[in-house]
Structure formats: C-alpha cells, structure tokens
Simulated scan of single mutants.
Amino acid sequence: MTSVMIVDDQEMIRIGLRAILEAQEDIRVVAEAGDGLRAVELVARDPVDVVLMDIRMPGIDGVEATRRIREVWDGARVKIIVLTTFDQDANVLAALRAGANGFLSKGVGPAELADGIREVAGGGGALSAAAAAALIGHVAQEPGVVVDEALARTFDALTARERQIVVAVASGRSNEQIAADMYLSPFTVKTHANRAMTKVGARDRAQLVAYAYQAGLVT
C-alpha cells in the first residue's frame, strides 16, 4: 500500500484528488496540507511514500517545501510529485533541482495520476508528455544555455538501445508506449531507462530529460 499526502492550498482540489485516489486499492491518502510549511512539518514527523505537491501556494511554495523536505528525507524514502500547470509555471526546473521526483499536470486524468504515483513509488519518475515538453522548454529558455560537453560525454557510456529509450522518454512517452514501439516488454524499457539514469547520474526520469537536453542528445 502506497501512502500519499496531498498538498494544495485549494480545498476543492484536495477533495477531488482524495476522491480519485481513494478509489485505488493500492493507494491510501493518509494526510493533507493546505500550505507548504504545514506539509514540511507533517512529513518531518510522519514520512509518507509520496507527496503530491502543488507548486504555487501562499507562505512557502512547493519548490521551497520540496527543498526543506529533502533536508530531512532523501528521495529514496519520500518521493515528491509536483502538480502544476506547466504552461504557466516557470519554477519547474527549480522544483527539479530542489529534489522533485516527478511532474504531472493538474489536468491529468485519474488513471494517469494513479499510474504516476505508482511509477514514482516504485523508483521511477512520473513525466507526462506535457511535462516533458514543458521541462525541455524551460531548459531551453535559460539564458546562455549551451551543450554541456562534460555531461554529453557521460551519455557516451549508453548503449544504442539506451540512447533510443532516453530520447523516447524525453518525448514524454510512457514505458508501455515505448515498449510497443520497440517491440520490448515494459520491464525491459524500465531496465534500460534505469541503467541510463545510473550511467549519467540522473536521479529520476525528469532529471534524465533535463540532462538529455543539456547534453544535446535531444533538442
């Protein structure tokens, strides 16, 4: 059973998310917080498997709350999925750097939300197509962005298949979609993606996408 905390300053959104997740047999909502500071306090005292974190809140926002949670719990113990409207938020990269494990749009459907939680809880990273596009867009908009040659050399260690899968991941495709395209099993795709993350030092799929762009592997 995956324990989840919902963090959002809008009560109706928390109610909606809870209703969706309580319909899942393997996911249990154990806590809610209406602001980032309260979330930090609750997680410090009683850690959960996954935090669904709104990025824009009064007081301390989702980026700062993520950073403070990471001061207490690493990404192996408490996973953090940032919920955001990607076309409006310029803080996606900041949340990634603060320690977020995944990103989902507030407009995702119930199935994608539940699957994203399962993916992150299992050691992967939730990254929808919209999230991947927005993440790359924000990286591209950073002033003075050039190919990081040192980072690019780490991608030389990837096999041809691993590079293919990294590019597919960067396009926002799920393990199942990549598996169907490449005639592989989803487990094999996940294995290749995990090996690629290890080789380039990426924490999760979101960071892998950012690294792939910074290394010039995708544009």
Rank of each mutant, 00 (worst) to 15 (best):
E71P: 00
E71I: 00
E71C: 02
E71D: 02
V72E: 12
V72G: 01
V72A: 05
V72Q: 12
W73K: 08
D74K: 02
D74E: 08
D74N: 15
V78F: 04
K79W: 01
I80A: 10
I81E: 07
I81D: 04
I81A: 11
V82E: 01
V82K: 08
V82L: 11
L83C: 05
L83A: 09
L83I: 04
T84Y: 00
T84A: 09
T85Y: 01
T85I: 13
T85W: 04
F86S: 13
F86P: 09
D87C: 04
D87V: 08
D89V: 00
D89M: 00
A90P: 07
A90T: 12
N91T: 00
N91R: 15
N91F: 04
L93D: 04
A94L: 11
L96F: 00
A98Y: 05
A100K: 03
A100V: 08
G102D: 08
F103G: 05
L104I: 11
L104W: 09
L104N: 08
L104Q: 10
S105L: 13
S105D: 14
V108T: 03
V108M: 07
G109V: 04
G109N: 09
P110G: 12
P110C: 10
A111L: 11
A111Y: 05
E112Y: 01
E112F: 02
E112H: 09
A114L: 07
D115G: 00
E119Q: 14
E119T: 14
V120Y: 08
V120T: 15
G124T: 05
G124Q: 06
G125C: 13
A126S: 10
A126G: 06
L127F: 04
S128D: 08
S128A: 14
S128P: 10
A129R: 15
A129Q: 15
A130F: 11
A130C: 08
A131R: 01
A131F: 10
A132P: 03
A132M: 05
A133T: 12
A133Q: 13
L135Y: 02
L135C: 03
L135F: 05
L135D: 03
I136W: 01
I136A: 10
G137K: 07
H138W: 12
V139N: 09
V139Y: 07
A140E: 08
A140N: 05
Q141M: 10
Q141W: 00
Q141H: 05
E142N: 01
P143G: 06
P143R: 11
G144I: 03
G144D: 08
G144C: 00
V145I: 15
V146M: 13
V147C: 13
V147D: 07
V147L: 12
D148N: 15
D148V: 13
D148Q: 11
E149P: 01
A150D: 14
A150W: 03
A152D: 06
R153H: 03
F155Q: 06
F155T: 07
D156A: 15
L158H: 12
L158Y: 08
T159H: 05
E162H: 00
Q164S: 09
Q164V: 04
I165Y: 03
I165F: 13
V166Y: 07
V166N: 09
V167C: 10
V167Y: 00
V167I: 14
V167A: 12
V169P: 04
A170Q: 07
A170T: 07
